[in-house]
Design a protein around this nucleic acid. Structure first.
Lengths: 205, 205
DNA sequence: GCGGCTATTGTGGATATCCGCAGGGTTTCA
DNA sequence: TGAAACCCTGCGGATATCCACAATAGCCGC
């Protein structure tokens, strides 16, 4: 990890008054706020690698909040999104949450309440990034394995003895040992137990 | 698993007309519907072991839908709950979904839409029961271990050699082997790899 | 041709795991 | 008192894992 940038609260709302007052509120609580006047402006500047969360108004001229949310999801972004709306719509709220939105808040909102939800969203983002990082490094390790090493690994994880693996692959036990040692090194583990744990846990590193 | 009873759709609504029409709809789609006129009536008859889902009206005389939902959760029930409401309330909908409700539907609803959601809820219930069953049997196995066996198991899962385990616990290697063999038998595994996988996966059996 | 990569194999020695057989001690309970 | 449960230990033998050292062969790119 190279010098992580502090998490940002990205505020997307075409109403300048909201951007000003909400931006002021968030900054007064020690959070870093980045305002955008439109979904298009945000998407043009966005990269999913940025830590933080997004506070997103539902109704905007041009691209709407939900459309932007769909775009983010299509780009593979998992950044938590808090929707803001002036007129509640239950099916939309339910669908948004079930689609993975972090929260859904009606205006006018209570200041403390909103800040709490933003802080929760930032914490959720941090957790999710840690999990993704672990899964990513594991994936990179797996990608370095040769086809043979991968075969041997699957059979090790199936609990088979070297001798049985050798029989099944029609190779010598010595060769199994060589592949075994090589894959353990590439996966950064010392034992089959460690390997099993590495590959079984969703995000643990 | 002894003769599983078919999953039921429990319909809790104090409006008899809704119970009749919705019950008829669900039964016409091959689902088994059990109606209740009140939350109290439902709770008096309920056991979490029953497979199925719950369609629950928000507003009822006596105990309300959300109150009943909280009661179910306190009793440890994970049965999927679909809330029905005549007047949408966004914060309540958002809170209910985030609290774990399966869905939230406004009346009047589209028949097909509701049946689809019920079918989805039943499928989710079946998946969750399978996961709980696996976790439960694993828990029962763990509960059978003696204190010493559990200690040895933790050290095995930490990837330590029997000789190292013996040193740390100040016992002989032969004793480690005895505990090891006993715990493997109690956990129903043959290798440390299998044990690691058994204890690392959330619900897999 | 040469180097890098992958797959393969053998030898010999060391360490690790597994277990039958045998035995002992302590605590609890009927 | 005897049985059950748990913990502990040694011996001997068998199998499994690990690896240094050494070597061969095939494929591919430069």
């Amino acid at each position: 990890m190279n010098e992580p940038t502090p998490p940002r609260v990205h505020l997307v709302d075409d109403d300048e008054a909201i951007r000003d007052s909400l931006g002021w509120l968030l900054e007064s609580r020690g959070l870093i706020c980045r305002p955008y006047a439109s979904a298009e402006e945000f998407l043009a500047a966005w990269t999913p690698a940025r830590a933080g969360c997004i506070v997103l108004d539902i109704r905007m001229s041009g691209m709407s909040g939900p459309e932007m949310f769909d775009q983010l999801r299509e780009r593979g972004s998992l950044t938590p999104v808090i929707f803001l709306t002036g007129h509640g719509d239950v099916p939309m709220a339910v669908a948004a949450i079930k689609k993975g939105a972090f929260d859904f808040v009606e205006k006018p909102f209570n200041d403390n309440e909103l800040v709490n939800r933003v802080v929760d969203a930032l914490a959720a983002d941090a957790r999710q990034r840690q999990a993704t990082h672990s899964a990513g490094s594991r994936q990179a390790q797996l990608a370095r394995l040769t086809a043979r090493e991968r075969q041997v690994m699957e059979l090790i994880l199936a609990g088979k003895f070297n001798k049985v693996i050798a029989d099944e692959l029609n190779i010598s036990m010595r060769t199994v040992e060589v592949h075994r040692a090589n894959l353990f090194e590439k996966m950064g583990v010392k034992t089959a137990v460690e390997l099993a744990q590495r590959l079984a846990s969703p995000g643990k590193d």
